[in-house]
Design a binder for these strands. Sequence first.
RNA 1: CGGGGUGUAGCGCAGUUGGUAGCGCGCUUGGUUUGGGACCAAGAUGCCGCAGGUUCGAAUCCUGUCACUCCGACCA
Length: 478
Amino acid sequence: MDNRKMVDDITSMDEDFAKWYTDIVKKAELVGYTSVKGCMVIRPYGYAIWENMQRILDGMFKETGHENVCMPMFIPESLLNKEKDHVEGFAPEVAWVTHGGSEKLEERLCVRPTSETLFCEHYSQIVHSYRDLPKLYNQWVSVVRWEKTTRPFLRSREFLWQEGHTIHETAQQAIEETEKMLGIYARFCEEVLAMPVIKGKKTESDKFAGAVSTYAIEALMHDGKALQAGTSHYFGDGFARAFDITFSDRQNKKSYPHQTSWGVSTRLIGGIIMTHGDDNGLALPPAVAPIQAVIIPIAVHKGNVIEKARQLEQQLKNIVRVKVDDSDNSPGWKFAQYEMKGVPVRIELGPRDIENNQCVIVTRHNREKTVVSLDDVATVVQQKLKEVHDGLYSKALENRNRRTYDCTTTDQMIDEMTKKGDGFIRAMWCGSEECEAAVKEKTGAGSRCIPFDQVQISDKCVCCGKPAKTMVIWGKAY
RNA sequence: CGGGGUGUAGCGCAGUUGGUAGCGCGCUUGGUUUGGGACCAAGAUGCCGCAGGUUCGAAUCCUGUCACUCCGACCA
């Protein structure tokens, strides 16, 4: 595999991963900074990635019976305050609107950090009978959380996401929904983004504010830090009680419905960067790459290269997202440029190729070159895109496996991370919050989740040595 | 919110003891090139982050402030 670094102006990831990340984000033209801290411009190339993600996910939601809606951006303080745990969780990081023009508002409005309260207010108006249930709603919006430290895609003060909010007749149905959506997220990450994830449940201390239980998918980044890639929450009837949402059930008794919410955000783009990127730049999963194949004509002044390149583009354009770069930059410059931007497949077409009715196809993740007859390009390009997807996935999985350690003591946890670097640590836990906090304090690795796929590492808690209840994945997180 | 670093041309940086603002890349024009970031020639580009102060004179010294960035704590 040829992974030589050919671009000097990206900081190498081993040298400084954080700097590498910001270099990529800027040089691949994904974002621009603005005069408001933590608020970024998502540039066309970055936004196109998001649009692809959105389109595919939205399709998955619709297939499973969800409908899109749009709630307002403002939440009156009194509404936010209705559910105690929820306010406590979000109040410290909300932005407030206090004036309309120069008039001070009667009641200040917060800019939504998440929309549970708005959905609840609405549900209390439209849900009356079991016949009105379930409501399976979703919205694509931006939300605001006044974070102290910010990083493009990973933590910004305003970010784009989707939030699903559903309301059901029974607890059972709501729990099923919570699990189903977590499954959809996992499938999306693995099959679309080529990003392996671990499905699990969050511990009590790590739950969403106001939830009965929170489920998450956790991914491991190239530097060994964990990224929470998506969450799905079961609310029980807690919100319904706080917001007085009731319905007449099948026995004609007044009853409280059960709710869920679930979301993924543009943070996933950060996940793609840190999962697949390398020292030559971004590497995009083909399914969401704005350009899937770029055609680079070589020696354009000779003969009919441009014309041939255009023909090839026409031939491919109904099959893949393709572009010809006929700018007068040198071929070498273009090679580097499109690798930086993570384009999965490059097609080189020069006079020598045209003579032989062929072209050269290069895959981004391993730089493998294949000479292909111009008659077969369409099928080969499709094969190659699949190869890139699979290649990215197995590379990411390999990294995760290499950085997954089984430990029975906290000293061993520290030891493994010092020797082999950060990663996922699988270790047993007794279930007490004291131990959970102590592990984090001692090792720096917090609980990521209690995976659905349990493995018995030992029978004692990694911290206190008392009988263990569950296996937990620990790690340092973004 | 604590600790460090950095603000000078679009980007990356230099600027000594306080004395008229520099380099590389990029950009523009013309020509030659083109299979891994091409070359030659001629150009254009500055509120030296911002606000005060010291001084005959400040990118340089002092005070304040803002932004970006990294490392922690908190969070999608």
